[in-house]
Amino acid sequence: MAASVVKMSADRSVSTPMLHAEMTGVTRIYAAKGKTPGVHALGPVDLALRQGEFFSVVGPSGCGKSTLLDVLAGLSSPTEGKVVFEGAPVTGSVPPGIGVVFQENAAFPWLSVKDNIAFGLRREGTDPAEVERRVGYALGFMGLEDFAAAYPSQLSGGMRQRVCIARTLVMQPRLILLDEPFGALDAQTRLLMGDELLKLWRETGATVMLITHALDEAAMLSDRIAVMSARPGRIMEELETGWPKERDSRIASEDHFGQITSRLWKRLREESIKATARGGA
């Protein structure tokens, strides 16, 4: 089944954009273990991320979105197929240049906010002055200056997620993968975090792939959106939003935003029903 490509506006790009990461014919099957039967979680999936784009993946719960991210990051190996990042195959480990923000609270409770953010740099043996500079910048960028000395247990969920984003940011990744990073946050916080994410994306020039189940989030943030089917997750459709690079949550009131979300929902509705009927919700 070939994924259909939908353009929501006139094609503005003239030259062919450069490929940053690519998945070809990727499947992931979890082997049966004891009494648990094997699960065909993903694919086959073909996916191409262009240099510098904001790409989102939406799909019903349990469709293998997180598996897709794990395989792309090199956190788990595909059963079949191939993953390429910046021209080199990804096998068994996370290549340098990829940063990941997870849904779960991944801030280390035994470190202060500042030490959490500096964690990766210090393990790499970065020069202390440079660590100080980058961490200071990230603290400011994520609005965490006043909390530098605080511990994660003193922060709200949204603040903790900022810490994790800052920890990724200081490593200066060229590809940032986000696995439902705002899934545990309330709706208003999510919108604001979306704005921060857009700002971060523009500032760093990194390629971003966001996994989400929130259609409005995908519609507002992305250049392109892939819609996944119920398990085993396949990409049913790729959609170009045609948003200008300078955008923020205010575009949520535009007609075009409504068109995108309704288009996504039309595609997803049946799949969500399938997933729910299976008890995947």
Binding site: S93, P96, V100, F102, A106, R123
Partner: peptide, 18 residues
């Protein structure tokens, strides 16, 4: 230990000792 800590360690490319 939360599995996400191990994932974070792998993303940050920590050695076994680290």
């Amino acid at each position: 230990i939360a599995p996400v800590y191990f994932k974070t360690a792998r993303v940050l490319r920590l050695s076994r000792g680290q």
